[in-house]
């Protein structure tokens, strides 16, 4: 286990550097520099003022020097100061990050709880009505713009039926409510965003579980178990499911960047004050440090997710422990 983890970490280092490099290049090769943006806002700003501004933000330095400076800052966990309000980027992200992470974890959880039983059930009855309904659902999930589903759900459940609130994460005045009321209020606000965020993932995951399960059920050891007279229930849960879930774990790790990226759209639709919303606002204001910080954090979250998936894989599957293959 230990050597595996070490190996896994060492492999992450070049990727980490790659991530910082891409972050930096993306932002710095774009022509709209912050000084130019300030110029757009007040065209009368003198050349001198622009130069001062550039100096203030360190933009007068050559690009490799800026990259090294930025790297140094990152390694001291300093992401710089926002151009917009002068606050520390890490503080701005820190207050937005929890809500985004919670929303994403809840959606992941929902995807797992719903998709695995659906996938297993339809793998046990290939070609049945349920199975065909799943195929239909999968194609819908892959083809539908999720923000459109969000809009429709807002119209139906929020506007027409009035069952659920359609914006924010709590009602006005929620701070004064007793705890259980606050909890209910909070849950009500989260139902729509979490369900809809899970939509595409649900489709993919249930289809994947289904094909993985179908594959496993064809294996010899399942036939052996059946021949031994092991009850079907145990065959499915003990012998088949455990093996079928292996690739699903990896897929879960791969689903993370999509979920985090999607938070830009969902947080904007549902007015959720999370990292996605902050990113959108920063992108609109060309707030370089904040954008770079969030890009970096987003990529890091993905790496961490993949790492957790790999470790989980390692724990579930004894074979790779022997092979030591990453």
């Amino acid at each position: 286990m230990f050597t595996y983890l070490i190996k896994r970490f060492i492999l992450m280092i070049p990727i980490l550097f790659g991530i910082t490099f891409v972050c930096f290049i993306v932002i710095n090769l774009a022509p709209g520099s912050p000084a130019a943006f300030q110029e757009e806002l007040s065209p009368k700003a003198s050349q001198e003022a622009v130069e001062t501004l550039k100096k203030l933000y360190g933009l007068d330095r050559p690009i490799h020097e800026r990259y090294l400076n930025w790297l140094k800052m990152i390694f001291t966990l300093d992401l710089g100061k926002s151009f917009v309000d002068g606050r520390k980027v890490e503080d701005k992200i820190k207050e937005r990050l929890p809500i985004t992470v919670i929303l994403n974890l809840l959606s992941l959880l929902l995807i797992l709880i719903v998709a695995i039983p659906i996938g297993v059930y339809s793998a046990l009855r290939p070609g049945s009505l349920f199975d065909r309904a799943l195929t239909f659902f999968v194609f819908t999930g892959f083809s539908v713009p999720t923000f459109w589903i969000a809009l429709l759900a807002m119209i139906v459940f929020g506007v027409n039926l009035g069952w659920l609130p359609i914006s924010g994460i709590q009602s006005i005045g929620a701070e004064t409510m007793p705890f259980h009321e606050r909890l209910v209020d909070w849950i009500k606000h989260l139902i729509l965003p979490v369900t809809i965020m899970s939509f595409a993932g649900l489709a993919g995951m249930s289809r994947y579980t289904r094909s993985s399960m179908l594959e496993v059920l064809k294996q010899d050891y399942i036939r052996t178990a059946r021949a031994k007279g092991v009850p079907e229930k145990f065959i499915i849960t003990k012998h088949a499911l455990r093996n079928a879930l292996l690739p699903v774990v990896t897929l879960l790790g791969l689903a993370i960047p999509g979920l985090i990226g999607g938070s830009v759209i969902f947080e904007s639709i549902f007015s959720i004050p999370g990292m996605g919303q902050l990113f959108y606002a920063s992108a609109m204001a060309r707030d370089y440090p904040t954008i770079m910080g969030i890009l970096l954090i987003g990529a890091l979250l993905t790496l961490i997710g993949n790492l957790i998936a790999d470790i989980a894989y390692f724990i579930i599957d004894p074979r790779i422990r022997v092979k030591g293959d990453v």
Binding site: V26, P257, F279, M284
Partner: peptide, 24 residues
């Protein structure tokens, strides 16, 4: 392939949004 891994680590929409927002 490591470059592919790096690109895959970014939430795609973040990357797209960052670039699009800086350009017109």
């Amino acid at each position: 392939m490591r470059f592919v891994d790096v690109m895959l680590a970014f939430p795609t929409l973040f990357l797209i949004l960052a670039v699009v927002a800086f350009l017109e």
